[in-house]
Computed example of a mutant assay.
Amino acid sequence: MDLNTLIETTVSGLGYELVDIEMSPRGRTIRVFIDAPGKDSGVDVEDCARVSNQLTRVFEVENVDFDRLEISSPGLDRVVKKAEDFVRFAGQDIQIKIRIPLGGRRNFQGELLGYKDGKVGLRLEKDEVELEFANIEKARLVPRFD
């Protein structure tokens, strides 16, 4: 089992959602971002400790060599990766970078309209665009502080 699958299986088995995994260049530090969708208050320190303890045990059994394991909430500017996330966060502001330019642009920011038929809808200042889900390189929520 590869490391990503191992982490996802463990995190989801504990009742959390795996948002993202980051690895240091030589894989010595593993950062795992989790969410608790059914919990109004989001992820807290106890959630992170629970996941950290379980992953540490699993890594020992599976002989995963690492120096440091960090567990964190995704934060207000969370990464949006899965099609379900683009549905879940519709109505929120988002920043999207695409691989192949559309109309000479690779970066878009606006209100997320959702996901349908392999496309992500986005309301910009003056118009709306549909971006191919497969063409999205990075997407991140933009928190509103008003």
Results as ranks from 00 to 15, higher is better:
G75W: 02
M23L: 15
E70P: 11
R28V: 01
L55R: 06
F86L: 03
D35N: 07
F86W: 06
G75V: 04
R68A: 14
T5R: 13
F33Y: 15
R78V: 01
A49T: 06
D35K: 01
Y16P: 01
A49Q: 07
S52G: 08
L102M: 14
D85H: 14
D65G: 12
S12P: 02
I96T: 12
I34G: 00
V11Y: 03
D85R: 02
D44R: 05
G15P: 05
I34D: 00
G38C: 03
G75E: 01
Q54P: 04
D93R: 15
L18N: 00
L18G: 01
G103S: 09
F86D: 01
V45G: 11
L69N: 10
F33E: 08
L18D: 00
R50M: 08
G75P: 05
V87L: 14
Q54Y: 11
C48S: 05
S12C: 04
S24L: 04
E17W: 02
D47C: 05
R106F: 09
L102T: 11
L14Q: 04
N107L: 15
F89I: 07
Q92T: 13
S72G: 10
I100L: 14
L102R: 15
V64C: 11
F66H: 14
T10W: 10
R26T: 12
V61T: 12
V51C: 04
L18R: 00
V79M: 14
Q95I: 10
F86N: 03
R105W: 07
N53F: 08
I94T: 09
V43Y: 00
R88S: 10
I7G: 03
G75K: 05
K39C: 10
R78P: 04
R99W: 10
R57D: 13
G104Q: 09
G27C: 09
S73F: 02
D35C: 00
D85P: 05
D93H: 14
M23R: 15
N53V: 07
R50N: 12
I94E: 08
D44E: 04
I96S: 11
R105S: 14
R105P: 06
Y16R: 03
L102C: 09
N107K: 15
G104C: 11
D20R: 00
V64Q: 10
Y16D: 00
S24G: 07
T9I: 05
D65W: 11
S41K: 12
V61K: 13
R28A: 12
L18I: 00
A90C: 09
I21C: 06
V51F: 02
P74K: 04
P25R: 11
F33I: 04
R31K: 15
R78N: 03
E46R: 13
G42M: 02
V79K: 14
V79N: 09
S52Q: 06
R78L: 04
K82A: 13
L102G: 09
G103M: 07
D35P: 02
G15V: 03
V80G: 02
F86T: 01
R26A: 13
S41A: 13
I94L: 13
T56P: 03
V87K: 15
G104H: 12
K39I: 00
P37E: 00
F59H: 12
L6K: 08
G42P: 01
V43T: 01
T9A: 13
D77M: 11
G91N: 10
T56S: 13
G38E: 08
D40F: 07
G91H: 10
R99K: 15
I30F: 06
